[in-house]
């Protein structure tokens, strides 16, 4: 049986924030008297994560995703509630715990800027008590997976953003962590590099049965990696479950574009009881509910003369963006 590697119970976190009014007067007021107020950024959340799962945290900026992630890896002490990550209290930052996890933050780099990444790898290896041969073996393996053999010997400052991110990943994974925390790992990367990164994460997850928690603004990251997502809204969890289910809930219909051989057929189709979105000459777009897609298509193929047919996947990105943008989303 797979057990829960991360358990979070009634977790809350408050910050003290000082505020300043704009303008000279605000500055002067700020000068004499800094107002601080306590803001509860995480409100009483609960969740469990099983070993080997890939979990995506979704939410708008400031919803609290990063705070949750930082609490999970022990950088922030919770105000209330309990966290257990692989049986440890994260904020104690015991050596055994630290060797089990890793944190990767997009655009924040730990590699030594002026040196080739390989130097940083060996430095990290020594920090994690990995001997030279083992380190070499792992670097070889990971660099194969990431396809960055040549870049290992070029100073970091001369690498492109994508190459740098791959090197960051290698540096962060050299100690074979069982739990990966990724905060916006694909930030600023081009589409190609994003895809490579995702494929690598998938492979790493497969091979090591590693647990991956990630936040991202790129919907593709979430949709292609995560089976399960946790939506964070205003510090609370608004949805926790399968990604597909979330998508189905949010977009129950598919759009099917049908190119009929003649305009006559199109007209016939128009009047056959299907929900029509638009119709231009012999091209007609139907809206079909998800659960009826296969049966409806069978009917159409059998009864009409059809030249071509396109099923438009529901625009997932737009849907999830809706979650991010909308102030309140009821599920």
């Amino acid at each position: 049986m797979v057990e829960n590697i991360i358990e979070v119970e009634r977790l809350s976190k408050s910050f003290n924030i000082s505020s300043k009014d704009p303008g000279l007067r605000g500055t002067l007021k700020h000068f004499f008297n800094r107002e601080t107020k306590s803001v509860k950024v995480i409100k009483n959340i609960n969740f469990q994560i099983k070993e080997g799962e890939i979990i995506g945290f979704l939410g708008a900026n400031g919803a609290g995703k990063t705070t949750i992630l930082k609490m999970l890896c022990g950088l922030i002490v919770p105000s209330e509630g309990s966290i257990s990550v692989s049986g440890c209290l994260p904020y104690r930052r015991r050596e055994g715990f630290l060797k089990n996890i890793t944190l990767i933050m997009g655009q924040k780099q730990q590699l030594i800027w002026d040196l080739p990444p390989i130097e940083s790898f060996y430095l990290n290896a020594s920090i994690y008590d990995i001997d030279k041969f083992e380190a070499k073996r792992r670097i070889k393996k990971l660099s194969d997976m990431l396809e960055i053999e040549d870049e290992l010997y070029i100073p970091v400052r001369k690498l492109s953003l994508g190459q740098r991110m791959k090197s960051e990943l290698l540096a962060a994974l050299i100690h074979k962590p069982k739990i990966l925390f990724l905060d916006e790992p694909t930030l600023g990367l081009d589409i190609n590099a994003q895809r490579n990164l995702r494929e690598f994460l998938k492979a790493y997850n497969n091979e090591n049965n590693a647990t991956i928690c990630l936040t991202s603004h790129y919907m593709k990251d979430i949709t292609s990696l995560c089976k399960r997502v946790i939506c964070v809204h205003n510090g609370s969890i608004s949805y926790d479950g399968k990604l597909e289910k979330l998508l189905k809930k949010l977009s129950p219909v598919k759009e099917v574009l049908i190119v009929c051989s003649s305009e006559k057929d199109a007209n016939k189709l128009d009047n056959s009881g299907f929900k029509v979105k638009s119709k231009v000459k012999n091209e007609i777009t139907l809206k079909i509910e998800n659960r009826n897609v296969s049966s409806s298509l069978r009917t159409i193929l059998n009864n009409y003369d059809i030249e071509d047919l396109f099923i438009n996947e529901p625009p997932i990105d737009e849907i999830i963006e809706k979650i991010l943008v909308k102030k309140k989303y009821t599920f």
Partner: peptide, 13 residues
């Protein structure tokens, strides 16, 4: 100058 002044007040310490 005005902007910089209020900026500098931020760094009074």
């Amino acid at each position: 100058l005005k902007v910089q002044y209020s900026n500098m007040l931020e760094y009074r310490v």
